[in-house]
Design a protein around this nucleic acid. Structure first.
Length: 838
RNA sequence: GCCGGGAUGGCGGAAUUGGUAGACGCCUGGGACUUAAAAUCCCAUGUCCUUUAUGGGCGUGUCGGUUCGAGUCCGACUCCCGGCACCA
């Protein structure tokens, strides 16, 4: 098979095409199985890391096919995005061309690996046929008020020359190019993801087949936090929580720890807080402050430094007191100072906090620096009256002290009582905050879906009518980025007429974040050429949610959160009838090389093509799934592929031997007990493999099949079983081929049809079943321990009574030297272990 | 700092509910076949000790505990990987 292996593989690839093995019957949704891989970005060529992903999915798909499911595994291309555009700028090839070329290369690779998809349903997010409906989706969101424009401080990447969503900023750096992110005030489009914060959080509990890890990451990202809003009166004026924040009569703070209110010794306020801004703007207000100039100077300085919320945590906190104005702590009417600080974020809560230095580490550090009082009000329940540590704040909950009538309550009780009392006075209310922000979707780049919006000088901003979709992305664009959208420079594109009044108007020049393309693609696969609808609701409602979604853990937050958000939006507007798009999620591990994730930019990429040339696709497929459980990261080492080739050769030889000699002749030469032993192994293996397939333990599946091959190849090792004759054992080769076929499809199809002489594809044959009565022998191997240490192994009848087993143990020669003292206890685990305790 | 995950031979890994630790494979060493090599097959392969056996001690990151019995459960710690991070 070595020489013509490539030809054999190609032969079966053609065969699967011919019999349309992977083409679904979408009308037949009974026993449906929608197996979806995250669609790839078309980069130059797929490496081993990608291959692991697709082989994993293909193996599962073929297994499900054999189990009799009506399988649907489509594939497509997430083709818009920055890499293609950057490559285009560098090499001066239009993204349309380079993308098409990359897709062709990748399709060829996938085919060579024996990976099958329903190619008739292929989609490509950069084709007008697809992005027309991405635009349609945007318009639905717009019409329902879920897409809006606002001027906001946004993350701007100076290197990519575009804004980024919060999720795309990692430690203050761009996730793509790692340039430091700048904050800019820009008018941008947002989607109201926050409107779904609570449901995105709650419904995670319904996703029982998602990895816990991914759900935890999403929960943390949504970041729900329950607490209270508490109003602090400015000087002695009477505040209420219902007045506006601009009103300088009071300042609202958000806290999760109202039990520490008595320990609040100053109020810290963001430099951008409206209270501060209006204070400095309005003359008679400003005159009340003794150090207005100092504050203005401070704010200017901090703004100049650029208060990024993410990159200066290590920096020492600074601030300046507003002299001349105080606030009243509502629990004890104590006057406390207000400090304008750089460590309170305007974007979260109310932009002001009650500072409790004794019980918050940040406030503690600040108070120490500026010599502000540190007042302990919580003590640990175990060590009452513990002095506050000189080095750290005590941040845990505990028992209240120095808190007037609330003393001796625990934190939980105190929270409720203090809030209730303040609520009566109108000074507090419950509030739930989320860390999740609205999704910023505008990108000042060329290679993306144009936002279907028209700006009319008379009518203002309005949608492109649905009948005019798609808004086609023009080809002749100078796409070099320059801080604003390249489309702005294309007059033919920009100039349009207002659909309402007909006067000359301008198109929106920004394109959409590519995560919108991937937030709904799983719906389009079922009717990719439909010219009238984004998706066919009746098909979608029958085929979704996706039964198995497979992809990288790097999409745990962004893609999966956005796709869930869009599904919920479509559900609420009755366009689909399910709330969650992906019933079961599997996140495969990364392939590591030299300690780093395999990636082109790091220069540690291994391409599978030369390995496939040398060993064949099946051997590489087997190896890639054999080296580790698929959800774990794995360090790549090409050395072991050889072993897989050897293994396939042994199976081939077994097949040759059985087919030449004939299976019956072969069994006739064996003793009956040999057959029984092999038969047991066959059924045990079917059981183990079937169970492990469901758990995605593909590595142990392969080793179990190897064990069965070893048993079928080698002469029997154990004899001495009862020799009552048994019916002829099932042909081991047939079982081996069936179990192995999802992993090594070409090889197995070849043996199935040309050696075992079966008609039709092995993938049309049902997955083998085991018979549990063949699994157990009538003798059990029992481990004998003395005081917990292994001392002997004996064979005994299954389910032997304890008394007889004890006699057997006492008779055993090997054990005599250990059983020197009187037996205290005799512990039996039936058919497994005996432990003699002396 | 917080939240996850992990640590098992020379290597990748196995051990599903506490019951033979190291399956399966790679590497390595030895042997058979061969004029020779490749391929193939067979044997060995955690570690130490001895009286060389159907022998024994030790051994799953560290320390301690529970149990007849712990890689697995509990408590404390070390290191590695991933996520989040002035979120009040």
């Amino acid at each position: 098979m070595t020489e013509d292996r490539r030809q054999i593989e190609k032969h079966w690839q053609d065969y699967w095409d011919k019999i349309k093995l992977f083409e679904p019957d979408l009308k037949n949704y009974r026993h449906k199985y929608y197996c979806l891989m995250m669609f790839p970005y078309p980069s130059a060529a797929l490496h081993i890391g990608h291959m692991r992903n697709y082989i994993l999915g293909d193996t599962l798909a073929r297994y499900k096919m054999m189990q009799g499911f009506n399988l649907f595994t489509p594939m497509g291309w997430d083709a818009f995005g920055l890499p293609a555009e950057n490559a285009a700028i560098k090499d001066n090839i239009h993204p349309t061309k380079s993308t098409a070329k990359n897709i062709a290369t990748m399709k060829k690779q996938l085919r060579q690996w024996g990976v099958g998809y329903a190619w008739s349903k292929e989609i490509n997010s950069c084709s007008p046929e697809y992005y027309k409906w991405t635009q349609w989706l945007f318009l639905q969101l717009y019409k329902k008020g879920f897409a809006y424009r606002k001027k906001a401080k946004v993350n701007f990447c100076p290197s990519c020359q575009t804004v980024l969503a919060n999720e795309q900023v990692i430690e203050g750096k761009c996730e793509r190019c790692e340039a430091n992110i700048e904050q800019k005030d820009l008018e941008q489009w947002f989607l109201k993801t926050t409107a779904y914060a609570q449901r995105l959080l709650e419904d995670l509990d319904t996703l029982t087949k998602w990895p816990e890890k991914v759900k935890i990451m999403q929960r943390n990202w949504i970041g729900r936090s329950e607490g209270d809003e508490v109003a602090f009166a400015v000087n002695s004026q009477q505040p209420t929580v219902n007045s506006s924040n601009q009103n300088p009569k009071f300042i609202k703070v958000f806290t999760t720890r109202p039990d520490t209110l008595f320990g609040c010794t100053y109020l810290a306020i963001s430099i951008e807080h409206p209270f501060v801004t209006s204070l400095l703007k309005i003359k008679n207000q400003k005159s009340k402050i003794k150090n207005a100039e100092e504050i203005e100077k401070y704010i200017k300085e901090i703004k100049k430094q650029g208060i990024s919320t993410r990159d200066n945590i290590a920096k020492e906190k600074t601030g300046v007191e507003i002299k001349g104005i105080k606030v009243i702590n509502p629990v004890n009417n104590q006057e406390i100072p207000i400090w304008v600080v750089d460590y309170v974020l305007m974007e979260y809560g109310s932009g002001a906090i009650m500072a409790v230095p004794a019980h918050d580490q940040r406030d503690f550090e600040f108070a120490q620096k500026y010599n502000l009082p540190i007042k302990q009000v919580i003590t640990s329940p175990s060590a009452k009256r513990q002095a506050p540590s000189a080095k750290r704040a005590y941040e845990s909950e505990g028992v209240l002290i120095n808190s007037g009538k609330y003393n001796d309550l625990n934190s939980q009780e105190a929270k409720e009582k203090i809030t209730a009392d303040l609520k009566k006075k109108g000074l507090a209310q419950k509030r739930v905050l989320y860390r999740l922000r609205d999704w910023l979707i505008s990108r000042q780049r060329y290679w993306g879906t144009p936002i279907p919006i028209i700006h009319c000088p008379k009518c203002g901003t309005g949608p492109v009518p649905e009948k005019d979709l798609p808004v086609v992305l023009p080809q002749d664009v100078d796409f070099k980025p320059g801080g604003e959208s390249p489309l702005k420079k294309n007059r033919n594109f920009i100039q349009t007429t207002c659909p309402k009044c007909g006067s000359s108007a301008q198109r929106e020049a920004d394109t959409m974040d590519t995560f919108i393309d991937s937030s709904w693609y799983y719906l389009r696969y079922l009717s990719p050429r439909d010219k009238k609808n984004a998706f066919d609701s009746s098909l979608v409602n029958r085929w979704l949610p996706v039964d198995q979604y497979i992809g990288g853990v790097e999409h745990a937050i962004m893609h999966l959160l956005y796709a869930r958000f869009i599904s919920k939006f479509l559900y609420d507007h009755k366009l689909i009838n399910f709330k969650e798009p992906f019933a079961s999620l599997f996140t495969q591990g990364m392939v590591i090389k030299d300690g780093l994730k395999m990636s082109k930019s790091k220069g540690n990429v291994v391409y599978p093509d030369t390995l496939i040339e040398k060993y064949g696709a099946d051997a590489v497929r087997l190896y890639i799934l054999f080296i580790a459980p698929p959800d774990k990261d794995v360090e790549w080492n090409s050395k072991g592929v050889e072993g897989m080739k050897k293994f396939l050769k042994r199976v081939e030889k077994l097949g040759y031997r059985l087919s030449v000699i004939g299976y019956r002749a072969q069994t006739a030469n064996r003793k009956p007990q040999t057959d029984r032993e092999l038969q047991r192994k066959i059924h045990q293996t079917i059981k183990k493999v079937s169970e492990d397939m469901e758990r995605f333990h593909f590595n142990t599946v392969i080793s179990s099949i190897m064990e069965l091959v070893n048993s079928a190849t080698r002469p029997p090792s154990r004899a001495g079983e009862a020799d009552n004759p048994q019916p002829a054992t099932r042909n081991p080769l047939e079982v081996i081929i069936l179990l192995l076929s999802p992993f090594a499809p070409h090889f197995c199809e070849e043996i199935w049809q040309n050696v075992l002489k079966n008609k039709g594809s092995v993938f049309k044959h049902p997955w083998p079943r085991y018979n549990s009565q063949f699994i157990q022998g009538e003798k059990a191997l029992i481990i004998v321990q003395v005081n917990g240490k292994l001392r002997a192994k004996i064979e005994a009848e299954r389910d032997i009574p304890e008394k007889e087993l004890k006699e057997l143990v006492l008779k055993e020669e090997q054990l005599k030297k250990w059983l020197t003292k009187p037996i205290k206890r005799f512990i039996v685990v039936p058919n497994q272990v005996v432990n003699v305790v002396m």
